[in-house]
């Protein structure tokens, strides 16, 4: 019928076509994802409010994994933490193209808080909770950028907590980690916490793991190393079975996570032997010894997104030199024990 047809001007008909083409894309979430994954982070956060579908797509954890794999960035700054355990001081060390300001750590200002380890933007710290009658040392993992933290259901009571000259001195004593009854020799169990390490690689997975290493003496002179791994996806600790034979000179107090493994340095060898433990594949838990010479180490640092953070002083110096930071002399560096990478 002639009078029923609505005549549309050319401009509006092409507009309708444009709409339909745009709609066809918008209805296909695969295509939208393909486009969104190419956007920088800032527009992405804004576009969350476009529609429910976009919010869903952008908030998906697989999407963020995909996005961070596509947009790899070299590290932009280092945090240096002084060796002093009490009142740790941070130095923020931005690299040339860093647009970040120094983040705040006020939430760590509580006395009795000590930073244990860090890895790829996650920070693990312990905090003395003295609101209850018996002081409890609680462990947290936090992301300083988003200021969100999660408490790790870990290691409970602190046995020796003394106050000396106005500050806390905490001797870590490990209690709540599951220890088999058969290996528990009465009350004389003496446990010595060696280290807690966060293992987090945003390019591999959104989940992090925490490795806890301690030694316990079953009898008087026989100390054995024990290791437990916490998985954030299930929220549970699991102890690795078996006695680990670790060369004497390996210092388990200082470890770094790098390339899917936690590495410890051996102090005996001049060319520094590293001991690595794969945290992602726990079924074949083995310690693998590496021999890196300095140059190789520095090369690895530069080529890969570094999460190496505890390296020998010459290697660190070289790394810094390669970033144009000659001002940091090695004598300054010696004061620092580990570095945070953000």
């Amino acid at each position: 019928m002639a009078h029923n047809t609505i005549t549309t001007p050319d401009s509006s008909s092409s507009y309708t076509e444009l709409r339909s083409a745009g709609n066809a894309i918008a209805e296909n979430s695969d295509l939208i994802t393909q486009i969104l994954v190419r956007l920088p982070v800032k527009p992405l956060t804004q576009f969350k409010s476009v529609s429910k579908q976009w919010l869903y797509l952008i908030s998906d954890s697989q999407f963020s994994l995909h996005h961070s794999r596509r947009n790899r960035k070299p590290i932009s700054a280092l945090f240096l933490l002084s060796l002093k355990k009490i009142n740790p001081e941070f130095s923020f060390l931005p690299f040339a193209d860093c647009s970040l300001g120094s983040p705040h750590f006020q939430f760590l200002a509580h006395p009795g808080t000590s930073i244990l380890h860090s890895c790829n933007g996650l920070l693990c710290f312990s905090k003395l909770d003295d609101t209850t009658e018996s002081s409890i040392l609680r462990y947290y993992v936090c992301n300083p950028t988003t200021k969100r933290s999660a408490r790790i259901p870990l290691l409970g009571l602190v046995h020796n907590c003394r106050i000396r000259r106005g500050y806390f001195r905490v001797d870590h004593k490990l209690c709540n980690v599951k220890i088999e009854e058969s290996t528990r020799p009465g009350n004389d169990l003496n446990i010595n916490l060696l280290g807690i390490y966060v293992a987090f690689d945003p390019l591999k997975s959104q989940n992090y793991r925490i490795v806890c290493v301690w030694e316990s003496n079953a009898d008087m002179f026989n100390y054995e190393i024990r290791i437990a791994v916490y998985r954030s996806e299930i929220g549970l600790w699991g102890e690795l079975m078996g006695a680990f034979t670790i060369p004497y000179a390996v210092c388990l107090n200082n470890g770094v996570f790098w390339n899917g493994k936690v590495h410890w340095i051996s102090s005996s060898d001049i060319h520094s032997m590293w001991l690595g433990m794969n945290v992602y594949n726990l079924s074949t838990t083995k310690f693998i010894a590496y021999h890196f010479d300095e140059r190789e180490m520095a090369y690895h640092c530069n080529a890969d997104r570094i999460s190496i953070v505890y390296v020998k002083i010459p290697a660190v110096t070289r790394l810094f030199l390669s970033h144009g930071l000659e001002a940091w002399s090695s004598c300054v560096l010696q004061q620092f024990s580990f570095f945070l990478v953000i």
Binding site: R19, S20, G22, N23, I32, P43, Q46, F47, V50, S51
Partner: peptide
């Protein structure tokens, strides 16, 4: 990249 949310809605969601 630099567009507003309104603009995106017009363009994609009709």
């Amino acid at each position: 990249k630099g567009k507003s949310v309104h603009h995106i809605r017009i363009q994609f969601l009709g």
